[in-house]
Simulated scan of single mutants.
Amino acid sequence: MKPIKLGMVGSGDISNRFFEQAAKLEQVSFVATCARHLDNAEKKAKVYGIPRWYDDYLRMMDEEELDAVVVTTPHSVHAEVVMAALERGLHVLNEKPMATTFEDCKRMVELAEANNKTLMNLPYDLNPSFMSAIPYVSEEVIGKITGAEAQLNIPGPGRDNWYYNKEISHGGAILDCMVYPISRLISMLGPAQSVMAEVNTIIPKRIVNGGKQIQSDVDDNATVILTFTGGQHAVIRTLWGTSIKQNNTLIYGRKGTIAVNDGGFPLVVHSPLAPIPDAESVTWRGYSDCYAPKLLPSIDSERDIMSHFVHCLRTGEQPKPSGRLQLHVHEIMFAAYQSAESGQRCTLTTTFEPWNKLDPHIFDTKSNYI
């Protein structure tokens, strides 16, 4: 088995999970770290036993014999690092969001395809709850799809840093949090057709960790309506202003409903017409005729982010969170900003080949009586 050598660009807390996941994989290692401040790169390298560190990612890419880089920098730096790596023939695992402009997202995908390199962009949706829900998105279980909703609501980031500075972040709750529910719905249901949105800053004067008072000029309140091929609407919500965290996904069908991470259950199927085999009968949101299926075990290549990325490097397979899929997700986010500003519906221009192939008839609610 050929060893895979990785470089890390970014030394914040988010980088830790990639070091820890890689350490569990056979013949996979980080050989260098890079951060804007050399002492931060050194500290991170010493924590994880990495031999070399840099404060110049171009130098790291040119001097080290790397197979791929992982990018965990602040949002506004993603594009320049990713494109530099792809230009040098390196594969890339890129944190969310892909970039802070749709044009940069497109350039990244086109460059990866032109150079025949793997570009895996987060979010990574392949957790047991999500993957276990996929088989139930069928006409046999829930009937024709009639709509969907998903949300990620939190009190807001507690740190006083670039999150609340639009000049640095180039976006707030949409790019940082709404990317998750959008990605889940698009991965589950396939490409959308159009976007309408309302986006604003509802809390410009915030109190963050330690009681510090700060000024925020980023979006922290966003609602998006996606329209799918059959006219179905999906409502997606992100709010940095709740006292609780909500991170759920619901798929509505004419005969049933699928709920992921809702009401204390990792997965529930409401199926009033027939029981779900091999599932526990439960009460969900006060409803009977609900079933909690057993979660599917993760397969080795989809156990976590790094295992999936490394699997794709070794096999040449496209990642499930592929460049084209995440380009579509990101067009939705940038179209949400555009729709909110203009007050108009935005038609989407991108598409992708879904890895989760639904029967297209599941969206056809008009041909027959249902």
Rank of each mutant, 00 (worst) to 15 (best):
Q326H: 13
N16T: 07
K44T: 06
K357I: 04
S301V: 02
I276E: 10
D55Y: 11
M83T: 09
G256E: 03
G256L: 02
D176A: 12
C34D: 11
T73I: 07
E317F: 13
K166C: 01
G143L: 06
S194P: 10
A279I: 12
G286H: 13
V218H: 06
N161R: 14
M196W: 09
D262L: 09
L226I: 01
M61N: 08
L175T: 05
P181I: 00
R59M: 10
D217V: 11
L325G: 03
L189H: 03
N16C: 09
M83W: 07
R237P: 00
A85M: 10
I182C: 03
S288V: 08
R237L: 01
R303F: 00
K357N: 11
A84R: 07
M8Q: 14
E64Q: 11
L189A: 03
N209E: 15
E280P: 04
E64I: 02
M306N: 02
S271T: 03
S301R: 05
Y252T: 01
Q21H: 09
P321T: 07
G253D: 03
K245A: 08
I258A: 02
K366G: 06
A35T: 05
G89C: 10
Q27R: 14
P360G: 13
Q338N: 11
L296F: 12
V329L: 11
A340Y: 04
D62M: 14
P297R: 15
T315E: 09
A279K: 13
T242A: 07
T365F: 06
E341F: 13
V109N: 05
G158Q: 15
H328T: 04
T100K: 08
N121S: 14
M178S: 04
Y54C: 06
V81Y: 14
V71H: 01
V109F: 09
Q338M: 10
P275E: 14
F352S: 08
I142M: 06
R314L: 11
Q318S: 12
Y164P: 00
L111D: 11
Q326A: 08
E20H: 05
D56V: 01
T33R: 11
L189Y: 02
L273D: 15
N165L: 15
P51I: 12
H270Y: 08
T33P: 08
F18P: 00
D39L: 15
S183G: 03
